[in-house]
Structure formats: structure tokens, C-alpha cells
């Protein structure tokens, strides 16, 4: 019994939170809630996938929020200024994200600069670039891009949301069942032993940071599809939500442990809390206090679960 609770702690917490808001607000179980949730989820989900991999490898990526905005900016500029087709512009946004990740990885993994500082610098650089490419304006793109975020007939889910779900499954598979996934865990668990086992920790960390950058780039596509415009102010503070989601999902900030599936449940918990608290009339300051407390509680429960 205790074992069952311990092993399914986060899923049970999610159920408990949903049940709580169901009782506390009659409007909670509604189409509006669901659609708000489904619209918010994809960007945070894909960014959290990347963050989870990075954290498991023993690194951190603080630049994801800004990289998301940079990608959105590149997409906006591509579509509006250069009149590129949306798919091409979207690809450019993702590539821009991957390049930011490559810069993080080259400096942080290969040149062995502190990864915290490198990605903190990238947080500023990418944000600045996002302002530059959009001329600090929100670039309106309209229906051309919104299709990605609108529900597909007959499925009821947007392409954006399905992409996010598929990526959760794909990256959970990558992490748990492939050679590369094992290498990520090994590097985060014991870097020196990994090197002795023939794994190049620099290579693994750099690759993981590129993935994180590319996923943040995809997040930029998702958030601009949802808004119908490229907002250079998008994703401010997103890195913290992503770290929170990963940690709630059982990922260790020390590296070597975590799961993408867990991070997804973490994303759900964070998002449901946001929406639910707003619905029962909690003010923004109190919402922040509550969300922060939940993150800390998650870490305490995680420690209890381990011992």
C-alpha cells in the first residue's frame, strides 16, 4: 500500500489536485478549462522534455525561455518580412533554437565553462536577438500559423498538442530504451565512471543541449501558433516552470535520475494549478506563493520516496 503510494506519488497528486478544484469550483470541469489547458500545454511540455534530458545529464539550460522567443521572432520575421511559407519559417525557428543549443553545448561542454553561466548568458543573448529580429514589436501572422494550434476536425486535438504528446512518448523511449539514453544517465550519474566506460561526457552533454535548444525552438512555433503572432516577450520565466515541472516529475538536479513521462505529469500539475487557482479566485500573488510551495513540497516528497 505504502509502496503503491510512493511509486505513483506524482500521478496521485495530480488526481488529488484535479479532484480538489473539481469540488472547489463548479466551472472547473468545463470545455473552457480544458481548452485553456490544451492551449497552454504544448510549449511548456516540449521545453520541459529538453530540460529533463539536460538535467539528467548533470547540466542545466537557463536559456530555454529566451530561445523560445528567438525562434518565435525568426518565424515571425520569416513569414511577415520575407513572405516565406510557414513550414519553412517554422523550420528556421527550430534551427535557430538548435544553434543556440549548439552554442551552449560548445562553450559549456567542450570548453568546460560553467554551464549555468553560459546558459544564463544565452538567456540574455537570445532575448536580445528576439527583439532585434522583430524590431521589438509583436509580429502578427494570423490564420496562416494558427492552424497548427487549432483543433483538427474529428480528433478534437490540435496538431501542436499531438506533436507534444508524441514527443513525450518518443523521448521517454529515447531515455529509457536506447543506447543514447543510457549514456545520458551514465554521464549525469558518474561522469568519471562514464569516461572510463568509453562515453565522452562532452559529446553527450553537447548533444543534449542541442536537443533542448531545438525543442525550445519548437516551443516558439507552438506559442506563436497559439497567439497567432510572434511575441519577443514570450517565454519569460519559462525556464523556471520547466525546471519545476521536471523536478516535480522526479528528475534530480544533481543529474543521473529522472523521466520524461514524469516531467509531463509535472507540466500537468503546474498548469492545472495555474488554471484552477485562477478559477477559484486566487489572486496572482497568492498563486505564486502556492505554486512555489508545491515545487518545494514535491522535492520533500521525492526525498521521502527515495528513503
Amino acid at each position: 500500500m505504502v509502496r503503491f503510494f510512493a511509486e505513483n506519488l506524482i500521478v496521485l497528486s495530480l488526481v488529488a489536485i484535479v479532484a480538489f478544484f473539481g469540488f472547489a469550483s463548479e466551472r472547473f470541469f468545463s470545455i473552457t478549462t480544458l481548452s485553456t489547458l490544451l492551449n497552454q500545454l504544448p510549449a511548456l511540455t516540449v521545453v520541459s522534455i529538453g530540460m529533463t534530458l539536460v538535467l539528467i545529464s548533470g547540466a542545466i539550460d537557463l536559456s530555454v525561455g529566451s530561445v523560445l522567443a528567438l525562434s518565435a521572432g525568426v518565424i515571425g520575421a520569416g513569414v511577415v518580412l520575407f513572405g516565406l511559407p510557414v513550414p519553412i519559417a517554422a523550420l528556421m525557428g527550430i534551427v535557430a533554437g538548435a544553434l543556440a543549443g549548439l552554442a551552449n553545448g560548445s562553450l559549456g561542454a567542450y570548453l568546460r565553462l560553467p554551464i549555468f553561466i553560459v546558459t544564463l548568458g544565452m538567456l540574455e543573448v537570445a532575448r536580445g536577438l528576439a527583439y532585434l529580429v522583430t524590431d521589438s514589436q509583436t509580429v502578427y501572422m494570423g490564420a496562416k500559423i494558427q492552424a497548427f494550434a487549432l483543433p483538427i476536425d474529428g480528433l478534437g486535438m490540435s496538431a501542436s498538442f499531438m506533436t507534444a504528446l508524441l514527443l513525450v512518448i518518443a523521448f521517454e523511449f529515447l531515455l529509457k530504451s536506447t543506447v543514447f539514453g543510457r549514456q545520458i544517465v551514465a554521464v549525469g550519474s558518474n561522469e568519471s565512471a562514464a569516461a572510463v566506460s568509453g562515453i565522452d561526457p562532452r559529446h553527450v552533454r553537447c548533444t543534449v543541449l542541442i536537443i533542448s535548444g531545438a525543442l525550445a525552438g519548437l516551443g516558439g512555433l507552438m506559442s506563436s501558433a497559439y497567439l497567432g503572432s510572434a511575441d519577443p516577450n514570450a517565454g519569460i520565466g519559462l525556464e523556471l516552470s520547466a525546471i519545476a515541472a521536471a523536478v516535480i516529475g522526479g528528475t534530480s538536479l544533481m543529474g543521473g535520475r529522472g523521466s520524461v513521462m514524469g516531467a509531463f505529469v509535472g507540466v500537468l500539475i503546474v498548469s492545472v494549478l495555474q488554471i484552477g487557482l485562477a478559477q477559484i479566485g486566487i489572486t496572482e500573488p497568492t498563486k505564486r506563493v502556492t505554486t512555489g510551495a508545491v515545487i518545494i513540497l514535491a522535492v520533500i516528497l521525492d526525498r521521502w520516496r527515495k528513503t
Binding site: V185, N190, R257
Partner: peptide, 15 residues
């Protein structure tokens, strides 16, 4: 330089 302490036997042998 040897073990991955939080991991299982299989992980440690095949890595």
C-alpha cells in the same frame, strides 16, 4: 571511476 551507484546491476554491467 567504476560504479553508477543509483543504477541497477544490468546498467552497470552493460554500460
Amino acid at each position: 571511476d567504476g560504479i553508477f551507484r543509483d543504477r541497477d546491476l544490468a546498467f552497470n554491467v552493460t554500460i
